[in-house]
Computed example of a mutant assay.
Amino acid sequence: MLWFYTLLPSMLPFLILSSLILHMGLLDPLLTKGEHIWRRLLQLSPQGAYALFMGILCGYPMGAKTTADLYRKGSVSRQEADYLLTFSNYPGPAFLLTYLCVGILQREDLAFLTCVILYLSSFLTSLFFRPSSQKRELQTDCMPSSPINLSEKSAKKASGSLSFGEALDASILNGFLSITKLGGYIILFSIFQVFLKKALPATPWVRYPVLGLMEITTGLSALSTSSLSFPVQYVLSLSFTSFGGFCVAAQTKSMLSGTDLSLLPYLKGKICCSFFTLIITLFLVKIIKVIV
């Protein structure tokens, strides 16, 4: 039901639209004008910035899927793809606002603070993994260096591009394949959690971290019914959400199929991001005491 009523209608249109944009070669005109901004702020090419935006707007695992799609097309280098995997997979705004803040925490007033904490943690993660020593290599690999190369690239795209109908058919097929994979992983991990709930001890500091690290939706739901105080629930909820859970890691791995990209950069990035989230949230709860 979670997949059918939430994931399917909220993510499938973005999956289809993103694939259509790539098939039709519309990405360069959309983002090339802000190239200097993406490179200076995040050290990304315009194509890499698109993967980041999709990850922010659509949520797990859209950032990884878009990165893999761009890498297959040769639009980003291996180095930039690995860099993107460390911080481009986000929990979507709809998940944060409706499911986490309203549904689980029942604190709509914490929506803005929650978004700031999680997105700030991801930005700090990007700084930690930024390949500054290879910046020149990133620039030469990801973007053409002259107008001649740009015109040659456009000519190749025009000669081998699909018609709108063909691109739309391919995008719909790709979107349904991806969304079905995600649903399968959510179902399998949710069933696995049923067995974990019976096997794990009742000790809160063992039970809820394990459930939260496996699959975030059911893990957060279980955490909300615990006897832990609200500040503790808030810290754990944001940390689990930032990490994404092993279910999202499995989804991300499936999105990388057909490429030689490794899941390791993603796992490193998620561990680092969840650590930043934990430290920032603990500081706000224990030191500043903005959450009661």
Rank of each mutant, 00 (worst) to 15 (best):
F240T: 02
P204R: 01
M1T: 02
L118T: 07
L282P: 06
S154W: 11
F230Q: 08
A49S: 15
A250Y: 12
K73C: 04
W38A: 14
M24C: 09
L150T: 08
S229T: 04
F87L: 00
T6V: 09
R40P: 07
L284I: 00
I291M: 12
L267A: 09
F275Q: 05
L12Q: 11
A167Q: 08
A94G: 08
R78F: 02
T114A: 09
L284V: 05
L284R: 00
T140Q: 11
A81T: 04
V292K: 13
T241A: 05
N174W: 03
L12S: 15
A49V: 10
D141E: 11
L138T: 08
D169E: 15
M11T: 00
Q233C: 06
G34Q: 10
P93M: 09
P144Q: 12
G244K: 01
T277Q: 04
F276K: 03
I271C: 11
I148E: 11
S239M: 12
F164M: 12
A199G: 03
V102E: 10
C273H: 07
L96H: 06
G48C: 00
E35N: 15
A94V: 13
S163P: 15
S45C: 01
L213P: 09
Y234Q: 06
I186L: 00
K153M: 07
Q79A: 15
T281G: 04
F246G: 11
T225W: 04
T252Q: 14
A49E: 09
V248Q: 13
I179V: 01
L211S: 06
I117S: 04
S10N: 11
T281D: 03
I271K: 13
A167Y: 10
S75C: 07
L173W: 07
E35C: 15
F128W: 13
Y71Q: 04
T225R: 03
G59Y: 05
Y208M: 06
R40H: 15
P144H: 14
F176K: 01
T114D: 09
D169K: 08
L177K: 15
Y266H: 14
